[in-house]
Design a binder for these strands. Structure first.
Lengths: 219, 219
DNA sequence: TTATAAAATGACTATTGGTCATTTAATATA
DNA sequence: TATATTAAATGACCAATAGTCATTTTATAA
């Protein structure tokens, strides 16, 4: 009898329905301002039910973030596949990261909040673990791309993939964080300090710099 | 009569005493878990008094962050002065940033929270403005260093200081954020993905890469 | 049809950010 | 010095909300 399976499936569906509702509420109001009552309302469930599926408010937020990471990793995989050469794979992943930021700003922001929260709170839930694993997966994709670049000589041979991948990740994340949190203000209000017309230009410039550091320049 | 001046001074002192107390509480418990009652208790004042000096909890947190930015900028200025050549100034500032992260991890973390908060909440208080200005000042110091490097030819002549400064800032911040939020976990638990023994090594590697991208390599 | 198990509910509690009428202290005035 | 006025501090209070749990409802098994 497939009753257990069906129930399992329904449970998963309900869980996803809650996450759907939570996205709407959290993304429109922000994590702090959003209330669990509002999420319950949006999900057409009672508040108590939410806590049958998620340990607490932040655990639910991590479930949202986990979804975002899936989308991001899918975009990374696609970018990886789309190019032949290692260096081009890296560039493609970098562009995919920027695309992710632009197409899914709310998911991207959830990553920033995840980061900030990890400083003073470590949650030991399934969602927290999944987020961690998916973060590692992103790193692995980058590492594979760097390795490919070392192998096909499109990047400098003295580059260590296991060192370069996390560094590239940090560098790109730093730029995109800046876009998400400060860039617009700087570009619009402080053109005397920041010489970019828009975000595209800043990403292009930053990526070119990074790319430059990976390639060989001895003639 | 200097009564007004003295009162002004006392007000400032009280404000600082509150920030002192708030640092202890916020840094030990984290922004969310800390309560205003605890801050009041630590400051030996009633809770109501806190709100005579700060608009709300987060405004008080920004006052803490503002202090951190002062320390950071002072370290940057010192680093800038410590070297003759532009490229060395940039390197020194980068190292000062890392030193700041290590010596004042709590202040550094407050910057991360500031970032994250700026996504869904913009506070229009004096402390918020001060933080913004001090952030810009950091950027200016970097820009001056880059300009010096262009002038003395220690960095590539096609580098635009007003573009490069914010990018460098984003890159370095990205690396240090990673150290603050993920690096230890990655280094200890995922040595198969991340090839660093410790944080020092990661910063060295990342900075070398960035430095490489600023210098001339045509023989 | 009845018993059992699973899922959902929503009233309730505890916590806490923020307020404000009242009190206390400091300064100015007579 | 005594009194009036202004400034600073207080803490009881309120509203909002995360999280709980005894009770009810629904689904499944006997």
């Amino acid at each position: 009898m497939g009753i257990t399976e069906r129930k399992e499936r329904e449970k998963e569906q309900r869980k996803n329905a809650i996450i759907d509702a939570a996205e709407k509420v959290f993304f429109s109001k922000g994590l702090d301002a959003a209330t669990m009552d509002e999420v319950a309302e949006a999900a057409e469930l009672s508040k108590g039910t939410l806590y049958l599926y998620f340990q607490n408010k932040y655990d639910l937020y991590l479930a949202i973030n986990s979804r975002g990471l899936d989308i991001m990793n899918a975009m990374f995989e696609k970018a990886f596949q789309s190019e032949e050469k290692g260096l081009d794979k890296i560039t493609a992943i970098g562009r995919a990261y920027y695309e992710y930021y632009k197409q899914y700003p709310d998911y991207f922001n959830s990553m920033i909040h995840w980061d900030a929260h990890s400083i003073d709170m470590t949650l030991e839930t399934e969602n927290a673990r999944e987020c961690g694993q998916k973060g590692n997966k992103a790193l692995e994709i980058v590492a594979r791309a760097v390795q490919a670049g070392v192998d096909d000589r499109t990047i400098r041979s003295d580059i260590d993939p296991l060192k370069t991948a996390p560094v590239l990740w940090g560098l790109a994340t730093g730029i995109l964080h800046m876009l998400a949190t400060k860039a617009d203000h700087l570009i619009e209000e402080h053109s005397d300090i920041v010489g970019f017309k828009n975000q595209d230009e800043m990403v292009e410039y930053a990526y070119r710099l990074i790319r430059f550091s990976l390639t060989n320049h001895i003639t």
